[in-house]
Computed example of a mutant assay.
Amino acid sequence: MTAYTLGSLLYEGKAKRVYQTDQTDLVAVEYKDDATAFNALKKAQLAGKGLMNCQISARLFELLEREGIVTHYLSLQEPNWMLVKPVQIVPVEVVVRNIAFGSLCKQMPIEPGTPLDPPLLDLYYKDDAYGDPLLTDARLERLGVLSASQRQELEHLAMAVNTSLRRFFAEIALELVDFKIELGFTTDGQLVVADEISPDTCRLWDRNVSGDAQERILDKDRFRQDLGGVVEAYGEVLKRVQAACPPPRLGK
């Protein structure tokens, strides 16, 4: 285990707390049991959710690492803590869609369940006060948060993540419908995948379930739609990920 001293709280979001440590190249992330939806208008406490998301994220970050995709992840700290590199988060939420569902079908004349080939990549301005609006090219240029080359790098990285995750989830009988990721710059200017990769951020359908569409849902939609069984669904995802991935490393 890495020897470090926990410092002050740097940031608290809807699902995680980020703490400074006594090492400049290391921050500690605590995954919370808080569940939120609709920009935190809906809230609940789900026992064990933080631990499961942390465990899933650690394994998926290591999966991406093995495939040459750089992330902020360093190691897992039991039971629901993670050590990561400090990054400056880009205030742009990246959403990649493989199948049309959710908000997309409310914004466009497209039927839920329609395959999207090639996948659709959307960028949103990450700010709850403005409702995380969809960014056009002109709006992104106006904000000035990314240069043209950085945007190209961001989109290339997001699509590489999609390819890796979609292939992996298919191997464990899960359909990656869509997902959102956050990216950030390390202190040396490298763009990396950050935040988390979990049923909170991925829409996942069970390929082993046919018939009732609601029964196949193994992600945050169970909470959004009041379907129940949220913790059980996350647990099923963790079980499959654990079976297909080696144990995550402990310590830095």
Rank of each mutant, 00 (worst) to 15 (best):
Q152W: 01
K126N: 05
A58K: 09
L146G: 04
R216T: 13
Q152R: 14
L46N: 08
L46W: 04
R240C: 07
I99R: 15
K220P: 07
V70M: 11
M1S: 14
P79G: 14
T36H: 11
Q45D: 14
A138C: 00
G144R: 00
S75I: 00
V145W: 10
K239N: 03
L76S: 13
P109E: 07
D137V: 06
V70D: 14
C105T: 15
R59M: 09
L83C: 02
L51D: 13
S147R: 10
F169K: 06
R166L: 06
G113D: 04
A100M: 09
F223Q: 07
L146N: 04
I181G: 03
D195Q: 05
D33A: 08
K126P: 02
Q20W: 01
L140N: 01
A244S: 12
L227H: 09
V237M: 00
K16G: 00
A3H: 12
M1I: 07
A35L: 14
L146P: 03
D25S: 11
R97Q: 03
C54F: 01
L238N: 13
N162D: 10
Q20I: 00
T114D: 09
N162R: 09
E65K: 10
V96I: 13
L116C: 10
L227M: 11
L165H: 02
I172M: 11
N162F: 06
P133D: 10
M1E: 13
D117W: 04
E153Q: 14
G235F: 05
N162C: 07
G228N: 13
D221M: 09
R139W: 05
L46T: 05
S164K: 11
R66N: 15
Y19L: 12
P119R: 06
A100I: 07
A37S: 10
L63N: 11
I89S: 03
L143N: 07
A37K: 10
V145Q: 02
V87T: 12
V18Y: 06
A148K: 12
V29Q: 03
S198A: 11
D226I: 01
T201V: 11
I99T: 13
Q225K: 15
G13V: 09
S75M: 00
V92I: 15
V18I: 15
V96T: 14
G251Y: 08
S57D: 07
L154R: 01
A158L: 05
V95E: 03
E155T: 10
Q77L: 14
Q214T: 11
L143T: 00
G144F: 03
S57R: 11
V87R: 08
V145T: 13
Y19R: 08
L10I: 15
P112H: 04
R224H: 08
E111R: 05
L140F: 08
Y130T: 14
R59S: 10
Q55I: 03
G251F: 08
D219T: 12
T114S: 08
V27C: 10
F179G: 04
E232W: 09
T24D: 15
Q23L: 09
A233P: 07
A194H: 10
P199Y: 06
K14A: 07
A243M: 01
F38P: 03
